[in-house]
Nucleic acid binder design. Structure first.
Lengths: 124, 124
DNA sequence: TTGACACATAAGCGATTGCTTATATAAAGT
DNA sequence: ACTTTATATAAGCAATCGCTTATGTGTCAA
């Protein structure tokens, strides 16, 4: 049952679920690569298969995940399917990570690098 | 750096691998929750266990992943281990997603919502 | 030293991931 | 009507994930 979390606000869970899908979609390097390609131009599936070393079905599966996360949109054109980016959806990621912005904009980075005790875990 | 290039340079693979770990670490909602807690204050493991409904070992395992991604740092203090955020590492995520910023800052959002043919996939 | 705490790690397990090959569907070309 | 092209879906599989319980390890307190 994957999650052990609290099932409190139903509406909150919906958008939280949406955020979850987006973060999950974006966690895969191939899918980020696809999004980066779509940032340049709308593309057919064949266009998207070409740059990668994996099969067409694999790309189609990635595209499905991106679709379900609302990150791309498809349009039929002849026998092709042209995928276009829906970049606005990435705002969820942006908004989250922006909370951490001060860590690289302020100078308190200088405070880092002391007491770097990553114990045992480093080797693994 | 981290660009969509070929899998050639070994150094490129290292940083790409690092980026991969960071995105993967951040893809889990519990781990994002942990980071959000650490944004407020340095915390012991017990502090981090309390807000969640999962076991202490589960949290420790999440912390290991965050450690390996370089997103947190540990310090021993008596019998506690105090975790502190290393927010600068999230810059990789920020830099990536910032490429998409125009999608929600510009007005060309108005162009969206026409030809919304998400076919078949919508139901699933 | 013994015990209680704070935490990490190990082992095991079901669910999910990302890939593959095989097959279905749909449009276009002949 | 066949064939080719473009894509999706299905089925299967090894690897990984996120959790659990059980057990280790280090620290303080008595």
């Amino acid at each position: 049952m994957t999650r052990a979390g609290s099932t409190r606000t139903p509406l909150g869970d919906v958008s939280r679920e949406h955020a979850r899908r987006i973060f999950l979609a974006v966690s895969d390097p191939t899918r980020r690569g696809i999004l980066d390609l779509l940032l340049v131009s709308e593309s057919s599936v064949s266009d998207l298969v070409r740059p990668f070393r994996i099969s067409q079905p694999a790309i189609s599966q990635h595209l499905r995940i991106l679709r379900q996360a609302g990150l791309v949109r498809v349009r039929r054109q002849g026998r092709e399917r042209r995928y276009r980016l829906r970049g606005e959806q990435l705002r969820a990621v942006y908004d989250w990570v922006a909370h951490y912005e001060r860590f690289w904009t302020e100078k308190l980075q200088a405070l880092g690098a002391y007491l770097d005790e990553d114990v045992a875990g480093a080797a693994e």
